[in-house]
Simulated scan of single mutants.
Amino acid sequence: MQFDANTALIPIDVQQAFDHAPWPPRNNPDMERNGLRLLEAWRASGRPLIHVNHASVVPGSTLAATHPGHAFRPGYEPRTGEPLVTKSVNAAFIGTDLDLRLRRLGVTSVVLFGISTDMCVSTTARVAANLGYRTIVVGDACFTFDQPDADGRPIPADTMHRAHLATLRAEFAEVVDTDGLLAALGPRELRATG
């Protein structure tokens, strides 16, 4: 796995909303820790970083801009000078200037992580690939939720997570883990996470 200066990290919807009802049980309790490791190393590398958050227009949503859940999880707030793209649908490229920002930066590859694996991360990855970006998803820095199937039978979050990462790997993205990505970034960035 190789990364150059034209690779951007895009954390997606790492917000407090998902800790509020009515969100069902989730998987991957290591998501937050892994994501913070990625952020720290990426900042040390000097590569582009664009944050994405969700401002829902659905009445009563925990992701609405006026709900406390709209806030970033601790440690995920953009720092001074780090751009933020706000979306209201699943794909971070739809109705936003994300593609324009990336093109102006000369970005050719994107690294995605966040919430949730099967919704906003997956949808953004699919659009990124269709737009011609080399797309990498950090699977162990994402999580998702239990979901009912069409007959109302529960599908565990971990099954949803694994199935969606498998689909992304088959057609749209490289799927990697945090340790592998950090190793590919190189010694300077690894020191930053020690």
Rank of each mutant, 00 (worst) to 15 (best):
Thr86Val: 15
His54Val: 11
Pro29Gly: 15
Gln15Ile: 09
Pro78Glu: 10
Pro25Tyr: 08
His51Ser: 13
Ala92Asp: 02
Phe143Pro: 00
Leu38Asn: 06
Pro59Lys: 13
Leu98Pro: 14
Met119Tyr: 11
Phe172Leu: 07
Glu82Trp: 06
Val57Leu: 14
Val110Asp: 03
Asp179Met: 03
His67Pro: 06
Asn90Trp: 11
Asn6Ala: 15
Thr193Gly: 04
Tyr76Trp: 14
Asn34Ile: 13
Gln147Gly: 12
Thr96Ala: 07
Asn130Glu: 15
Glu82Gly: 14
Thr108Phe: 07
Ala183Arg: 06
Thr144Cys: 15
Leu9Gly: 07
Thr135Trp: 04
Val137Leu: 09
Pro68His: 02
Ser88Tyr: 02
Pro74Glu: 14
Met1Ile: 11
Pro59Tyr: 09
Ile10Cys: 02
Pro83Gln: 07
Glu174Met: 04
Leu36Ile: 00
Ala65Met: 08
Arg153Glu: 09
Val175Met: 00
Arg162Trp: 05
Thr108Leu: 07
Val127Pro: 01
Val52Lys: 09
Trp23Pro: 03
Ala8Cys: 14
Pro25Arg: 13
Pro59Trp: 12
Gly75Tyr: 00
Val127Gly: 05
Arg104Ala: 15
Glu171Cys: 05
Pro24Asp: 12
Trp42Ser: 02
Ser122Gly: 07
Ala163Arg: 12
Met160Tyr: 06
Pro25His: 11
Phe3Ala: 00
Ala170Gln: 13
Val107Ser: 01
Ala64Asn: 13
Thr117Ser: 08
His164Lys: 08
Asn27Trp: 14
Gln2Gly: 07
Thr123Trp: 01
Phe72His: 15
Leu102Glu: 12
Asp149Lys: 03
Met1Pro: 06
Gly35Ala: 11
Gly69Lys: 06
Asn34Cys: 08
Ile115Asp: 09
Ala141Met: 10
Thr108Trp: 05
Gly95Phe: 09
Leu39Ile: 02
Met1Glu: 09
His51Asp: 05
Thr135Arg: 04
Ala183Phe: 12
Phe93Gly: 01
Ser45Val: 01
His54Trp: 11
Asp30Val: 12
Ala44Arg: 09
Asp179Glu: 13
Arg169Pro: 05
Arg188Leu: 13
Arg104Leu: 14
Leu102Ala: 09
Phe18Gln: 07
Arg191Met: 05
Ala5Val: 15
Pro78Trp: 04
Phe143Trp: 11
Ala8Val: 12
Asp4Pro: 04
Gly186Cys: 04
Leu49Tyr: 01
Ala170Glu: 14
Gly106Ile: 05
Thr144Asn: 09
Cys142Val: 04
Gly69Tyr: 05
Asn28Phe: 04
Asn28Pro: 08
Tyr133Val: 00
Val138Cys: 04
Asp97Met: 10
Leu168Arg: 01
Val121Ile: 11
Pro48Tyr: 10
Ala173Gly: 10
Glu40Lys: 10
Asn90Met: 12
Arg73Val: 06
His54Gly: 00
Ala5Phe: 08
Ser45His: 03
Arg104Gly: 10
Phe143Ser: 13
Thr144Met: 13
Phe172Asp: 00
Ala21His: 06
Val121Tyr: 02
Ala163Trp: 10
Val85Arg: 08
Thr117Tyr: 02
Glu77Asp: 12
Val14Phe: 06
Tyr133Phe: 15
Ala17Ile: 08
Thr86Phe: 00
Arg188Gln: 13
Gly69His: 11
Arg103Gly: 13
Glu174Gly: 04
Tyr133Lys: 00
Thr7Asn: 00
Ala125His: 07
Ala166Asn: 15
Val121Glu: 03
Val89Gln: 03
Thr117Arg: 04
Thr66Pro: 06
Glu171Asn: 03
Val58Gly: 06
Gly46Cys: 13
Pro154Phe: 12
Ser88Thr: 15
Asp179Lys: 12
